[in-house]
Design a protein around this nucleic acid. Structure first.
Length: 495
RNA sequence: GCCGAUGUAGCUCAAUGGUAGAGCAAUCGCCUUGUAAGUGAUAGGUUAUGGGUUCGAUUCCCAUCAUCGGCUCCA
């Protein structure tokens, strides 16, 4: 076999192969392993107190799903038992923050067998967080030159033929729906609709850039076995937008969309951001000069942003180069959120035009972008990043008012009314439980402020404040607390 | 889709070839409470679904669905 590999004609099964492989062998005492490595020099270097077998799972031979599957045993090895313990502790921490667990405990969302795999039900509390995130998103878009659009969930087969999705993306799309002899498809993307809106009128260079934004819900076929809580689902909403601009506007447009993305991500508490620039792959559409100009523009913009970035040579989509933004969450795990993609393909396919200064029809440039990416996934990441203890501006319940005895309830509701009128989300825990139990419950629900009201507070028109951290702020007048809470909300205070 | 595991009350989990139990949650009382669980009672399950073996299946077998850990793919 090795002879076959060495001479470059056949692989390990005697099947012909094109390239000559590099063969490496690792040897430890009597054990000889044909492996790419690296291996430890000697098993004596492994501390038996610092290893642990973790799990067993199947893995494809050479990572190819068409090849047979092998049993793989996963283990982890560390320099010292202490390091192993630290690693296991981190795994435990991650488990505690698991958005699927917190989603249930905090009553945020569910995925239900009756409805279907990969289809999310947003419960009232989760929906409140989504509403707040979306409201912020909307305000920022309106301040920054976007127009909102709404588009349908299905479109005719011809539309997806024109866009190329039926050619290139069909395996991710669901079977068509037949309506009066015509085939319609559930949308896997929003772009064709936005393009049709662009094309609904004659566009002048004076109209550009145009920015159409929509929180568009799309449906993509995911193979069973890949769904994962909110992170990987079959129906999700993208915070999508398409920019249409004249070629010479491109650099400014990229600068804008990049800094706008960073502004949005940072507002949600993601401060560790890294960028990936993906360039032209072998198979691509569009002129090489166009690609080159776009890649230069993207890279220049990255340089100006000061973000650390890496280049993924040839990693772009066939229709254009892109910048992906990845964030690190509180546990240091990396997640891809934003994507900013150039598109040389769709303007051509849809024959999009604008009239330039000379009265001639020209082809606009098009940029796709999603900042949160999928709102479902973004929510999942947000839950894990904060371990369910959302910053106060996003907390579904910001304030829990805890009357000590029944006679304090009227006062508690009066305080709640006053806070609600100021736009704060306050609730009274009027169950007949002991105060300690109510505090425990509010802590578990990760409510930012607990206000205890008893005889003393009633007399003074005050509230006794406890943060979810356990910190006691003591007693203060309601008006004073109101100002404090509003300030925390406005400043997007965490913790 | 593939490999492996799992599926019992709202949640976390027991038990059994002779139709199931606990804690928490829930509901109804009692208590009226000072910074993370007061107390009593009640209710809650065709044991995921469909077949098969068996006198009898929730338990054994098969299929389907879903979930979990991976692989492949991906927002």
């Amino acid at each position: 076999m090795i002879d076959g590999l060495e001479s470059g004609g056949v692989d390990e099964h005697g099947e012909p192969v094109d390239e000559k492989p590099v063969i490496s062998i690792y040897k430890d005492d009597e054990f000889v392993d044909l492996c790419r490595g690296p291996h430890v020099e000697s098993t004596g270097k492994i501390n038996p107190q610092a290893i642990k077998l973790m799990s067993v799972a199947g893995a494809y031979w050479r990572g190819d799903e068409n090849k047979p599957m092998l049993q793989r045993i996963y283990g982890t090895a560390w320099l010292s038992p202490k390091d192993l313990k630290a690693y296991l502790w981190r795994l435990e921490e991650a488990k505690k923050r698991d958005h699927r667990k917190l989603g249930r405990e905090l009553d945020l969302f569910s995925v239900n067998d009756e409805v279907g795999a990969g289809l999310v039900l947003w419960h009232p509390r989760g929906s409140m967080i989504r509403h707040l995130a979306e409201r912020f998103w909307e305000d920022e878009h309106l301040k920054n030159g976007y127009d909102f659009v709404y588009t349908p969930h299905i479109g005719k087969a011809q539309l997806w033929e024109t866009s190329g999705h039926l050619g290139f993306y069909a395996e991710n799309m669901y079977s068509p729906i037949e309506i009066e002899g015509q085939q319609y498809y559930l949308k896997p993307m929003n772009c064709p609709f936005h393009i049709e809106i662009y094309k609904s009128g004659l566009r002048s260079y004076r109209d550009l850039p145009m920015r159409f934004a929509e929180k568009g819900t799309v449906y993509r076929y995911e193979r069973s076995g890949v769904m994962h809580g909110l992170m990987r689902v079959r129906g999700f909403t993208q915070d999508d937008a398409h920019h249409f601009c004249a070629p010479r506007q491109m650099p400014d447009e990229i600068d804008f969309v990049l800094s706008f993305s960073l502004h949005i991500l940072r507002s949600f508490g993601f401060n560790e951001i890294e960028a990936y620039l993906s360039t032209r792959p072998e198979k691509s559409v569009g002129e090489p000069e166009q690609w080159h100009a776009a890649e230069i523009a993207l890279e220049e913009s990255l340089k100006r942003s000061g973000l650390p970035y890496q280049i993924d040579e040839g990693g772009g989509a066939f229709y254009g180069p892109k910048i992906d933004l990845k964030i690190k969450d509180a546990l240091g795990r990396e997640w891809q959120l934003s994507t900013i993609q150039f598109d040389f393909n769709l303007p051509e396919r849809f024959d999009m035009t604008y009239i330039d200064e000379n009265g001639e029809a020209c082809r606009p440039y098009m940029i796709h972008r999603a900042l949160m990416g999928s709102i479902e996934r973004f929510f999942g990441i947000l839950i894990e990043h904060y371990g369910g203890a959302f910053p106060i501006w996003l907390s579904p319940v910001q304030i829990k008012i805890i009357p000590i005895a029944d006679r304090h309830q009227d006062f508690a509701f009066q305080v709640a009314r006053e806070l609600k009128e100021a736009g704060l989300r306050a609730e009274v825990d009027d169950r007949s439980d002991r105060m300690n139990a109510k505090i425990r419950d509010a802590e578990k629900q990760k409510v930012p402020f607990m206000l205890v009201v008893g005889d003393r507070e009633m007399e003074e028109g005050a509230v006794d404040i406890r943060r979810r951290s356990g910190e006691r702020l003591g007693s203060m007048p309601v008006a004073e607390f109101k100002a404090l809470a509003l300030k925390d909300v406005a400043e997007k205070v965490e913790g």
